[in-house]
Nucleic acid binder design. Sequence first.
RNA 1: GGCAGGUUGCCCGAGUGGCCAAAGGGAGCGGACUGUAAAUCCGUCGGCUUAGCCUACGAAGGUUCGAAUCCUUCACCUGCCA
Length: 421
Amino acid sequence: MSILDELEWRGLIAQSTDLDALRKDLDAAEPLTLYCGFDPTAASLHAGHLIPLLTLRRFQEAGARPIVLAGGATGQIGDPRDVGERSLQSVDTVAEWAGLIRGQLERFVVFDDSPTGALVANNLDWTGGQSVLEFLRDVGKHFSVNVMLARETVKRRLATDGLSYTEFSYLLLQSQDYLELYRRYGCRLQIGGSDQWGNIVGGADLIRRVDGGSAHAMTLPLVTDSEGRKFGKSTGGGNIWLDPRLTSPYAWYQYFVNVADADVGRYLRMFTFLSREEILALEEDTRERPHLRAGQKRLAAELTTLVHGAHQTEQVVAASAALFGRGELTGLDASTLDAAMSEVPTADAVLGETTLVDLLIGTGLVESRGAARRAVGEGGAYVNNVKITDEGWTPSSADVLAGGWLVVRRGKRNLAGVRAR
RNA sequence: GGCAGGUUGCCCGAGUGGCCAAAGGGAGCGGACUGUAAAUCCGUCGGCUUAGCCUACGAAGGUUCGAAUCCUUCACCUGCCA
């Protein structure tokens, strides 16, 4: 199966320029070079970024050469979005984030001396020293404002709160990137989220106008769940990040374990490198025996391994099994509990003194005393899987599990460990 | 630079002197049901030392017994004009 058929089957192609022409270029003797850019809009990439990153890798495995681009320049400007003008980050912040993101980007493609060995670039390298006059003459002249105004995002913004010249210009910067990579590395395919279509085609047009070259464009679907919610938002509403300091491997694993049945097949296709046969089998499993959550577990394990490594995956799988297993917590031995508790937030407590409300706050399971009281009042507070309805309840030695632990839970699946003293 | 309109809680959005910690919706959170799923129903949704107090309706100041609501100045946003 060709790479394009593969991508099609996985539901990874949203829009593209002529696929047959692209197919021909992919079949050529010389490896096709392609790129995808990632703007440093935060200190870490999040789960949604995995789609284009993994797609770069799929292309690489199929014999193409990927370039991962850190948007040190474009990140300073900001791509116009529907909701309104972005507030600019300081140049230093963007540079710092670009460095962090670059480190993450490098983990998903293979760097070697072969013709398909990946490259890393930062668009600040060619825009940083560029003068306004150069930019306007060499790039700006090739863009029609009429066309730019017709873009969906621009139209929406003009109809609502308007947009700055800075954001309006973003298209030109990204287009210039494509041209630059075309010139430097013969890059002839750019991929990105479906919201990038205009930016990508803009670059392909620029290459044609300026250098008379031909270049391809392909976008990947913006991943949403079956509810239409943007993918990668944790239940708390925040992003789930690749950086383990921002999203623990345990939380990462849990996010995917909790994916809805309606989404798991789609996600397996898009996010994993499992074979077609394996995925079809898991999809059937989900239909026939949904309560086993085989698809979710495999998806979570695959993604945790991909991002945090096999060792971490073993640990979070074991922790999840211990904490969500059928068995009683009292049946767990100290080493199992120690291992499980190392994956969740923890706090200390003094027997007979620390109250339930303090436990909930101390472990970070709730944000305020009011929230803690509310949780208790709503019947959402548990210690060692036993619902506690008294705010002033304090643990006694009879409650302590092996290894000196108490397992505090808020709601169905927010767990924390407490070391009793 | 001129004129007009705007700035409300996580988001959208009502509110033009007391009944406003602020309608309604969304998101979130908890419970029931399940399968750590979805749907549904119910509850909840600023903070605290919680019959009370504190902080909050762009910022600062003022009027008033009392202000998200009125006045002044400032900042920012949008539109029209220059």
